[in-house]
Nucleic acid binder design. Structure first.
Lengths: 340, 340
DNA sequence: GTTAGCACTCGACGGTCGAGAGTGCTAACA
DNA sequence: TGTTAGCACTCTCGACCGTCGAGTGCTAAC
């Protein structure tokens, strides 16, 4: 324990917190005396607990119940943990074995991995990327007068869509068009492309469809990249914990997850390397019994994304930090490989 | 009501079912007398209800509670509905406005639409496609020595992945390779491609990476298409209904949704145009208080997929059928356009 | 065939009571 | 001065009980 509390008191507080994390039940003096501080009697523990309560670290649901750690106690406990080092969860990488297509897939994969490792709700945020520039543009022939329009940006982001083209165009013709388009559009930002093509396609003509398709795809791509993307995994893991055995509370919690704004806000407050928000610190009423543990990860040059775990305040922070650390590193690695 | 029950009894039973659907509370004789059959006294209704109970259409939770429809009653009610015509939900199309990339996106979109319209859990199944043949194969240049490998099949399915290539290869070179590969591989099944390339890539050499990439992508594509794909939307809508106000039940329900096998089974029993499985008919214990309403939709030539809604037995079947009908048709249309 | 009336049943609700858990306080002890 | 045993006290929880009200089934009259 960092400060404010010395040796024995600190040990007792820690024991109470850890027992409460395991059992979710108010911890009595006798439990501590038997399981943790076997050389002290329950009466002694009681005196210490009484002190700790006065200091604001413990609370009693009612007079004849045991003690429950306060948010202040968790704060102390977590700050202590964050100062120490913790092992990286070795099993994390296994969860990434599935097919990974591009950024979005990696993100989704990470969210699932994190929620499966921790058994809590996981959130992964991908930072927005502004002013993407087109690096390449290609039409791939498809059956029956369709073509797949693929746009690749300088950052390696990919977006594609199926458009209709004249049936007369074969692969070579489509490639010729692709080449010409790439020549004219490479290096332009998505916004510029939209403006340029807006003018063209209003003229109508044979290949207006292609140009319209490009403009639409560019617009969509920009829209998608201008906002931070957020993925949630294991949303209903929360039902596994007695804190949310009340359906109303669980529903409220899940609603917050659905309306992404508040989550965004939480993750954007993530600082490097780890941030822990406990209960009321989240600023979200439906999460007053939750903690949010976040870590940031590196995406290419300078961009930072964030990953986080949301669970009851009474969560095994050590394990969660290990998992976050592992998933965050894996993420940085994978995104470095495929994208940067 | 189709058979077994004549005029007034049928009307009363219908009234009971519809009231129960609205309120989720046992329906008393007085309620029916006042709200539905105002020209009959509650005593008369009581007599009829007593008959209906003897016939197995109603049940009493306890002697002084009202009556609750049995599964047999729902069966009758639903069979009656299925015989009639119902309006198509006009608002369905609005939900499809988002970006739609290819089959998977359409499926996801449909699941969300369906769950938002009905406020229940929606499932959408895409049928497996065996023996896909390659129609085109193309490498799109990406920054920093990467390329996007795109495979298009004759059915219009698309799969892509990022692979590393020699930095010396520019767009034209990649197109030349693409052309050659397409020439050699077009018309082959994914399995054949894997076999052919397995041999090549073992030889090593400069472009072994490309061939390996193709083989891997083909393998993945086949894996993905060989199994039916399933998407679930609005899973936790179930929490909105008093039938699942017990967290344990809700959890069990959500677990069934996660382990997809049982869902697959349910959807594969879907017959054209609509199928309704009531409570125990689902064969899933965790869903004994649920009904599953499914519809099938057309995917291209001959293939049929299925969409479904899962909610409490006491659901407004009429509305659900309307929604299914609308989403199913939209789906057929969209897949017809872009894929077929 | 329908209805009013009435006795009856059963769950929901609120109150009471005893058991058990855990506390705080006090006094004795090292 | 710190630790501990002992004890009275408080509070929750489950069991039990009586009341209330909803809804039924039955009977007799229309």
């Amino acid at each position: 324990m960092v400060r404010g509390i010395e040796g024995r008191k600190a040990r007792i507080l820690k024991a109470i917190i850890e027992d409460y994390i395991l059992t979710a039940m108010p911890v009595g003096s006798r439990t501590i005396s038997r399981k943790y501080e076997t050389n002290l009697s329950s009466a002694t523990i009681r005196n210490e607990m009484s002190d700790l309560e006065e200091l604001g670290y413990l609370a009693q649901p009612h007079v004849s119940a045991g003690r429950v750690p306060s948010h202040k106690a968790y704060r102390l406990y977590v700050d202590d943990l964050l100062g120490a080092s913790f092992p990286e969860d070795g099993s994390a990488r296994e969860y990434f074995s599935r097919q990974v297509r591009q950024m979005e897939d990696v993100i989704t994969c990470a969210a699932h991995a994190l929620s499966e490792i921790t058994r809590y709700t996981a959130v992964v945020m991908m930072p927005k990327q502004l002013d993407l520039r087109i690096s390449c543009l290609q039409l791939v022939p498809m059956p029956r007068g369709n073509a797949l329009l693929v746009i690749v940006t300088d950052t390696g982001a990919i977006q594609d869509t199926v458009i209709r083209v004249s049936e007369a165009l074969d692969g070579d013709a489509l490639y010729a068009i692709s080449r010409m388009l790439t020549e004219r559009l490479a290096g332009r930002t998505l916004k510029e492309v939209q403006q340029m093509l807006g003018a063209y396609s209003r003229q109508g003509g044979a290949d207006a469809r292609v140009l319209q398709g490009i403009a639409a795809l560019a617009a969509q791509m920009e829209r998608q990249n201008a906002t931070d993307t957020l993925t949630v995994g294991g949303a209903h893991n929360i039902l596994n914990y007695p804190e949310y055995s009340d359906v109303e509370k669980a529903r409220a919690f899940l609603s917050v997850l659905e309306g992404r704004e508040k989550l965004m806000d939480l993750l954007s407050r993530s600082q490097s390397p780890f941030t822990v928000l406990i209960g009321p610190e989240t600023g979200i009423d439906e999460m007053r019994d939750c903690s949010v543990v976040t870590a940031s990860y590196q995406v290419g040059a300078g961009h930072r994304g964030a990953i986080g775990v949301i669970g009851p305040t009474r969560m095994p922070y050590m394990k969660v930090l290990s998992a976050l650390s592992a998933v965050g590193n894996t993420l940085t690695e994978m995104l470095g490989e495929t994208i940067l």
